[in-house]
Design a protein around this nucleic acid. Sequence first.
DNA 1: GACACTTATCACCATGCGGTGACATTGCAA
DNA 2: TTGCAATGTCACCGCATGGTGATAAGTGTC
Lengths: 207, 207
Amino acid sequence: MAKAPPPLRSRDRDATARSILAAAKEVLAEEGFGNFGVNSIARRAGCDKQLIYRYYGGLDGLAEAIGADLAAELAEELKPLSTPAQTTYGALMKHLALSLLDLLRRNRLMQQINAWEAAAPSPLVTKLIAARAKRMGQWMFEIRGALKPPAGIDAPAVNAIVIAAVQQLVVSASANGEFSGLPLRTDADWRRLKDAVSALVEGIYGA
Amino acid sequence: MAKAPPPLRSRDRDATARSILAAAKEVLAEEGFGNFGVNSIARRAGCDKQLIYRYYGGLDGLAEAIGADLAAELAEELKPLSTPAQTTYGALMKHLALSLLDLLRRNRLMQQINAWEAAAPSPLVTKLIAARAKRMGQWMFEIRGALKPPAGIDAPAVNAIVIAAVQQLVVSASANGEFSGLPLRTDADWRRLKDAVSALVEGIYGA
DNA sequence: GACACTTATCACCATGCGGTGACATTGCAA
DNA sequence: TTGCAATGTCACCGCATGGTGATAAGTGTC
């Protein structure tokens, strides 16, 4: 009997490879690393998992591809944020913290990477971390320019604290809609948080 | 022929139940929620997984038991931190942030709960979160007493930021030994971070 | 038209998981 | 002693996973 034509697929290697990459990013962004596996990705991409091994050499290679993709995407998002000259170091850090908050809030993929970096530091997530850290560091170096922090202040430590807070708050909000009793759902909630961040940064670096 | 005596086990229900609970806490603290399952726990406890179902009604019940256990433990650790009267609201918050940092740094179980709360908000971890939040809120209420924050400052938001930073930094340090390029391994590293936290809190609430 | 090559799919394996029913052993009580 | 409940162990099921070899369906070339 005439077998129904099973291979309805497009038979275009590049296209399928792209769709696999897209599916992988979706799975990661929506479900996190917990469900990040060949079966899940192949299901979403609508193709056989074998192709993941053929075109990416397995999950590791796929993660690397995601890393490269993420770095490019990140560079694109960071570019418009590099306003040429902030007048003071404090103003710069404030701008940086608030920009990072907005960027992170929009990017669920990066949220998941941050979340899982702490929870399950597998070699898989480490690859992604490296890709992100490289771009971020480069950006911060560029944007800082020649500005120096005020004397007597441990700027690296202070900045790490601010960035840590931003990350934790965005990720927590995304997962639970609040942090430690502080609601983080509406735009007004975020406005309020941003004001507090601004106040903190100005409090230590000067207004 | 004479079967070797298989049941070398102690045949003491309470003792076995306790050993299961202990094993569960160990698995959670050392490996996180990723490996938190009946097989893994039973292996570590050295008993059959069936007993987990019999004595705790499955993983959910076991998680609840861990929650209760954690709440008690937490109350015990929090008690000596309740120094009766801080002179100013700023000094109080500083004390609170630094105490929380030390406590969290010592308690791997709580680190894992924080980490997985963001990564995989399963009903399992939600139970644990609730147990922790209840105790923490109660403690903060007690320790605050009648002190009021300075006018013009959104204290809840600021405090959430500080606590968020502490959590993220401790958890990241535990997983990677650093955060955003800031090393967090030696006591000197932590001393440095604490100084920065102090400076930030004093910067906004006044010294 | 016949051939080789690429693309895609399927069937299968071993492993580990959560979960359950049946069975052996012990100790207490009538 | 006999019976029974409590404690502990084992064998098994269904399912999902990561991974691999064989096979079918299209596509370009001579």
